[in-house]
Simulated assay, not measured.
Amino acid sequence: MKIQEKLHSGKFRIIAILTLTAGILAIPLIAMQFTDEVKWNLTDFIMAGALLLSTGIAIELVIRNLKTGIWRTVILVFILLVLFLIWAELAVGIFGSPFAGS
């Protein structure tokens, strides 16, 4: 199998999603060891992990089912926009919802 084919295989992308999620979650975990400014508990890690994994899987599904085109781009941008809005709401409460972090 060529390298190009391996990079575009679904198995490789799933491994990349899991690795990136673990890497992103490792940032606050490591930061908590060196500073008191980062104070995450188990619920924070679970919520962030669920949010990142669901976003990654949604992106993977779009990539698998829509080969090219404007709709694929629009849906991917929408997924990322939803990720950033939920993340911001959980972090600082920009909309003032009951589950806001502020």
Rank of each mutant, 00 (worst) to 15 (best):
S9K: 03
G49F: 02
E89Q: 09
N65K: 15
A31Q: 12
L76Q: 08
I94K: 10
A26V: 09
M1W: 04
T21A: 05
L29G: 13
D36I: 07
A50H: 00
L61Y: 11
G23E: 02
K39H: 12
Q33Y: 02
G49I: 05
A100S: 15
F84N: 14
I94T: 09
M47V: 11
G10Y: 08
Q4E: 10
F34N: 08
N65R: 15
A91F: 03
I14K: 12
L18C: 15
E37F: 09
I86S: 05
K39Q: 15
W87N: 08
E60D: 13
I14Y: 12
L66F: 12
I86Y: 01
E89A: 09
P98W: 10
I79H: 07
F12P: 02
K2L: 09
L90M: 11
H8S: 03
A88F: 03
A91P: 02
E60H: 06
T19F: 06
I14N: 08
I59A: 09
L53V: 10
L76N: 00
R13Q: 11
M47P: 00
I94M: 11
E60P: 01
L51S: 07
S9D: 11
V38F: 11
G101W: 14
F45D: 07
L61N: 09
G96W: 11
I15V: 15
F12M: 11
W40E: 10
K67A: 12
I27Y: 01
T35Q: 07
T35L: 06
I75Y: 06
K11M: 08
S54P: 04
D36P: 04
A16W: 01
S54N: 14
L83Q: 10
A31K: 10
S102M: 09
E89W: 06
I24A: 04
I75E: 00
K6Q: 07
L51F: 02
K6D: 04
I17C: 04
A50I: 06
I63H: 08
N65S: 13
G96A: 14
I27Q: 01
D36T: 14
K11A: 12
L83T: 04
F12E: 03
A22F: 01
Q33C: 11
S9F: 01
A48R: 09
D44E: 12
N41G: 14
I86H: 01
I14W: 13
I27C: 00
I17K: 05
D44S: 14
F95K: 10
G23L: 10
K2H: 05
L81D: 12
I27H: 01
F84G: 12
W40Y: 14
L29D: 03
I46T: 14
L66Y: 05
L18Y: 06
T43R: 12
W71V: 15
A91I: 00
L53E: 04
A26P: 02
L81R: 00
I57E: 06
N41P: 03
T21I: 03
Q4L: 06
S54Q: 12
F84P: 03
L25K: 00
T19P: 01
L83K: 04
T35M: 08
S102N: 15
L81P: 03
L85Q: 12
V74Q: 09
K67F: 03
E60S: 04
A48S: 13
D44G: 11
S97N: 13
L53R: 02
L61T: 06
R64G: 01
K39R: 15
I3R: 00
A88L: 08
I94L: 13
L85F: 11
K6Y: 10
R64W: 05
R72G: 09
V82H: 02
I30M: 10
V62Y: 05
